[in-house]
Design a protein around this nucleic acid. Structure first.
Lengths: 335, 335
DNA sequence: TTGTATGCGTTATCAG
DNA sequence: CTGATAACGCATACAA
């Protein structure tokens, strides 16, 4: 079934069929109905390729993320897909892994698919030096690039993120105000967002005049999903330097710290306070439940898609949207 | 940049350019190099729409799942996307939710995008009565339909799944053999797979001659991610009927049971044994760690994609691939 | 081995 | 309001 078949059966030209298909108002209601009936009868659906050729777009957005099975990224992808779908856009998903070169290839690949925009989910798409971000600049020359949980100032690049610096700083302050000054800071990524969190933590420690806090800043290399390994890692740290508080850049890491504490009979929150980050479902899976920073993921994804839609329809949109994180207090802290 | 521009600059015809683009061997190495150089120089990439029109395919697979942020589904989507990507296919992701009508619409939508195949992730795409599965039959008339974690016997529909019946039956037997006969069975879905699990559980109970076990079979309505609510649900059950074992159809539900036990000072595994299902990352997030059934998700996704690739290249492939589950023993059980 | 000509199914620009 | 007709960019049968 093509537009020609329909036009013939309806006794009109293909132009008219195309018009009713695209909802043009310049067509007499009676002819519209006639055409619509034929379309209905033969269950005709326009060929997507041909349509894309004419329109230079197929209403699809490329979503790139390192690993869609990561708790945080999976949720982000879900919200994004839902919101895009609701606005008539399809999503092409690419899981790129954490290697930068591979990411570049994926961007080229997705570009060749003629998507209308690209969403980069997670701050690991932004590198520290300019060279690393070249591929984003190039892509932005063609279509709008949306960053979730990262920021990059460049034409046609739009950023939506949480103020991780302030949020982490606030979390650390809460713990310090409770009198806990020997705090283990656990992180596992030097991404844009990871750096912000770390800086926020440091700022709070400085502000409260804590000496030598840097000895308790540790980076865990490896997949944080392997909670058991994280626990071992924390165990080795605890043997060297005692601590009464743990702040983690990811909930997974915090869970590892809890696990280690429980293995050693350390009481939570009496002997040890723990704060995680992301406010993921893991916070409710442990006992006691994990205090964690909520980074307003759903608000972020909503804002991002709205911004994208605006950009695509030619409106002037904010280059950067920042949300505030919020400490959600649960059982692993006394404050 | 079009194929015409390239052909002109290379001093050949568009047909030749097309040939080198598609790796035809009927082109002289020297001309091939000449064309390739021009392509390289101008960073030409073929237009995906035009190509799709000629080839009637764009090497894309539609992946439908109810909720890509669900732990199990997210992992499945991740594995699928990786494997497809490695074989030159893109993935269009659709999160359909759990409503059947909406699912039908998504299938139509994805069909109109001219994907080469559709993967239905999760057993909730298969209904109990024939009427409900009509949309699958219709779709399979156009392109191959792949089912992950479900089975449906119909031409051009291929199923890959875990033998949930046997796996669950085995898990229950292990618990029964350990002398625990008062077992709470928790589930939350009547999907194809959910039914298999339940039947497997019942079969084991029957086989071991347990009376009145059905009083302890409970369905939790609601999102299982809300662990706290699951715990409350279990609490209300425990008030009515005591039990010394819990078998859950999802890890999330098992975590809820653990949570409730811990709230009430019930020792695990001494007073209560718990078995989950899916062997998700949650199993390592609680203390003690959760014994769970591994359903070989990665093997399943691998097999599914290989089958799909075979079908697409015209080979005869198995209509159904069944994997065996395996009980992974951890700290929530003594056996 | 290479080139020519045509088809693919739409959209869009013109006239009418 | 409606109808021809020209793009759109590529693949391919057919010629050479």
């Amino acid at each position: 079934m093509t537009i020609y078949d329909i036009s013939k059966k309806a006794g009109v030209s293909i132009a008219t069929v195309s018009r009713v298909l695209n909802g043009s108002d310049k067509v007499r209601p009676s002819t519209r109905k006639k055409v619509l009936d034929i379309i209905e009868k033969y269950e005709y659906t326009p060929n997507a390729f041909a349509r894309g050729m004419g329109l230079h777009s197929l209403k699809t957005i490329g979503i790139l993320c390192a690993d869609s099975s990561d708790l945080f990224l999976a949720k982000a992808v879900y919200f994004l897909e839902q919101e895009l779908q609701a606005n008539g856009y399809e999503s092409i998903l690419c899981c790129t892994g954490y290697n930068l070169d591979i990411k570049k290839n994926y961007v080229d690949l997705i570009l060749s698919k003629k998507v209308d925009g690209i969403i980069l989910v997670g701050s690991n798409f932004i590198g520290t030096d300019e060279e690393e971000n070249q591929y984003i600049k190039e892509a932005s020359a063609q279509i709008p690039i949306m960053l979730l949980n990262a920021a990059f100032d460049y034409p046609n690049v739009y950023s939506t993120l949480c103020d991780d610096y302030a949020a982490m700083s606030e979390a650390a302050s809460a713990m310090l105000n409770a009198g806990i000054r020997d705090i283990l800071y656990l992180y596992n990524s030097d991404s844009y967002s990871g750096q912000k969190k770390l800086k926020g933590f440091k700022a709070a420690m400085e502000r409260h005049g804590v000496d030598g806090y840097e000895k308790l800043i540790y980076c865990y290399d490896g997949p944080p999903q392997r909670v058991r390994d994280v626990a071992k890692f924390v165990e080795s740290i605890a043997r060297e330097t005692p601590f009464r508080g743990v702040i983690a850049a990811e909930d997974e890491l915090a869970i590892g710290a809890i696990k280690n504490a429980q293995n050693h009979g350390v009481r939570i929150p009496e002997d040890l306070s723990v704060i995680g980050y992301n406010n993921s479902m893991l916070t409710c899976c442990c006992t006691p439940e994990l205090t964690s920073v909520d980074n307003r993921l759903e608000s972020q994804t909503h804002q991002l898609v709205q911004t994208l839609l605006g950009v695509l329809s030619g409106e002037e949109m904010p280059k950067q949207s920042v949300f505030s994180g919020k400490l959600i207090k649960r059982g692993t802290t006394l404050f």
